[in-house]
Simulated scan of single mutants.
Amino acid sequence: MNSLHFTAQSSSNGMVERDFTIGEIPGVLWSPPASGAAERAPLVLMGHGGGNHKKHPAMAGRAQRLVAACGFHVAVIDAPGHGDRPRTEHDEREIAELFRARAAGEPEGPIVVRYNAHLAELALPEWQVTLDALQELPEIGTDGPVGYFGLNMGTAIGLPFVAVEPRITAAVFGQHWPDVLAEQAKRITIPIEFALQWDDEHIPREAGLALFDAFASKEKTLHANAGRHKELPRFEADSAVRFFARHLGGPVTSQS
Rank of each mutant, 00 (worst) to 15 (best):
L29M: 02
A171K: 03
N116D: 01
K186E: 15
R87P: 12
E24D: 15
L122Y: 09
E193C: 08
P251D: 11
H56V: 02
G249T: 00
R65H: 11
L66W: 03
D143W: 04
G47V: 05
K218V: 15
E139T: 01
V16F: 08
M59L: 05
P86W: 02
A123C: 09
H176Q: 12
A210V: 09
D19S: 02
I190P: 14
E39S: 12
E92Y: 06
Q255W: 05
N2Y: 08
M153W: 13
R100H: 11
I168N: 00
G208C: 00
H82V: 13
N2S: 07
A185R: 06
G71C: 02
R205F: 04
E126N: 11
T21E: 10
P233F: 05
I188E: 12
N152C: 14
H229Y: 03
R234N: 12
D238R: 11
S11N: 10
D199K: 07
G144Y: 01
G27E: 05
A171D: 01
Y148L: 10
G147D: 03
A216Y: 04
T189W: 03
I95T: 11
N13G: 06
D213I: 02
H53I: 10
L151W: 07
V162M: 05
A79L: 09
L211D: 02
K230A: 13
F20R: 01
E165V: 11
L196M: 14
N152A: 14
G23T: 10
C70T: 02
R246D: 00
V76D: 03
F212T: 03
I95M: 08
P166I: 09
G50P: 02
H53T: 13
E206P: 07
Y148V: 09
A214Q: 08
T7Y: 04
L4V: 13
G83W: 03
L124Q: 15
R187Y: 06
P110H: 09
F173R: 04
D132N: 11
A207H: 03
R114C: 15
V76R: 00
A207I: 03
R167A: 12
F235Y: 14
D238S: 15
S254E: 15
A226C: 08
Q64V: 03
I95H: 00
Y115C: 09
I190L: 15
L43P: 05
M153A: 11
A237S: 14
H53Y: 15
R228T: 05
A104S: 10
L45G: 09
S3L: 11
M46Q: 04
L151Q: 10
F6T: 13
R187E: 14
D78S: 00
K230W: 11
A237P: 04
H56P: 00
E139H: 08
Q255P: 04
Y115F: 13
R228P: 02
S3Q: 14
M153Y: 12
T221F: 01
R87K: 13
Q128A: 15
L66T: 12
V172Q: 11
R102W: 06
W177A: 08
L232D: 01
F243R: 02
T130I: 00
P191V: 14
Q255G: 07
G61H: 01
F244Q: 00
C70Q: 06
F99I: 07
L29T: 01
V164G: 06
F215S: 04
D238I: 10
